[in-house]
């Protein structure tokens, strides 16, 4: 087991290095730098050149890359030109918000997917299954940002059931019960909006897994042992069908990253996604680079997590 995990983690290292090089090169290719627009126009070009020199911006790319990576490893993601504060500090606040939003979305995703997928798979080709399958097709076809806007308009503005922006009501003391409740309250609508769309993959996947497992020979063996229909479902079909969902977990996380970018902007939720888009429009490159790097690492970690989960639960690939 540990051998597999160690090997799997070792594979991650070149992945992350490659990712960081890619992001660094893309960042360098972006036109202009922080000095070209932000500094007093009275400063002479010679002085700017001197500044660039002293900031190390004229060094060869690999030296600059080394400096950047060295900083990143120590938690120094650079300086935001917009907020005039370290990127790590800005990201630090946002990343927690995004984490909670993602977690809530994941919970809703599985809360919706598991019962729907099971019903759909168990009673396949029934009316109920057709209704669920129709929902998944609609989910596939509906763009998340439009759906999120509609949800915001209906439940936020028209019905007024949920707050329409922010991550917490102003004026509450962090750590109090009201503060936590307000946090949760702000989470629910964006999380549900996102989950309703992203869950359709999982519903379909689970449905086809169950239909597949239902036809396996060992299900007949179970019936021949005298197991009742409910036991056949609970002990044999469900267990064997839920397992592959673990492998799906990594994709789930990648999907979430894309989702948060839309949803946070639409719901005005101060997380990484919102920060990302804002920083792009304002050309706050050091923030963009940092956020991209973190998103990339999250995706790689997601894949790692599903591999490890799968190797833990599936005896066929479990390594002793």
């Amino acid at each position: 087991m540990w051998k597999f995990s160690v090997r799997r983690i070792l594979i991650m290292i070149p992945q992350i290095i490659l990712l960081s090089i890619l992001i660094f090169i893309l960042a360098k290719m972006m036109p202009g730098d922080a000095l070209s627009g932000m500094v007093d126009p009275n400063v002479s070009p010679e002085r700017l050149e001197e500044l660039r020199e002293s900031l190390g911006w004229n060094d060869p790319w690999y030296v600059q890359y080394g400096d950047w990576v060295g900083g990143v490893v120590q938690g120094d993601l650079g300086q935001s030109f917009r907020f005039k504060m370290p990127v790590s500090e800005i990201v630090g606040q946002r990343i927690i918000n995004t984490f909670w939003l993602s977690l809530a979305t994941l919970i809703f995703t599985y809360l919706i997917a598991i019962p729907l997928g099971i019903t759909s798979g168990r009673y396949n080709d029934s009316l109920l299954d057709q209704a669920i399958t129709s929902y998944t097709y609609i989910g596939f076809a509906t763009p998340l940002f439009i759906f999120a806007l509609v949800m915001l308009w209906v439940f936020g503005f028209m019905l007024g059931w949920f707050p329409t922006s922010g991550s917490v009501s102003p004026g509450l003391e962090p750590g109090t019960f009201e503060y936590v409740m307000s946090k949760i309250y702000h989470l629910i609508l964006p999380a549900i909006a996102m989950a309703l769309i992203t869950t359709v993959n999982t519903v379909q996947y689970l449905r086809s897994e169950i239909i597949d497992t239902k036809q396996k020979d060992f299900i007949i063996t179970a019936r021949a042992k005298g197991a009742s229909e409910s036991r056949v479902y609970n002990r044999h079909i469900l267990r064997n069908s839920l397992l592959p969902l673990a492998a799906f977990f990594g994709f789930e996380i990648t999907g979430l990253i894309g989702g948060t970018i839309f949803v946070e902007n639409i719901f005005g939720y101060p997380g990484m996604g919102q920060l990302f888009l804002e920083s792009i429009t304002l050309r706050d490159y050091s923030v963009v680079t940092a956020v991209t790097l973190l998103f990339g690492i999250a995706a790689i970690l997601g894949a790692l997590l599903s591999d490890i989960i799968l190797s833990l639960v599936d005896p066929r690939i479990r390594i002793k």
Partner: peptide
């Protein structure tokens, strides 16, 4: 079934639950 009557299947690999 499984008590008074038992059944042996053709393909022993697929007849057993892999998990």
């Amino acid at each position: 079934r499984g008590n008074n009557m038992g059944m042996i299947f053709q393909d022993p690999l697929t007849a057993l639950n892999p998990l």
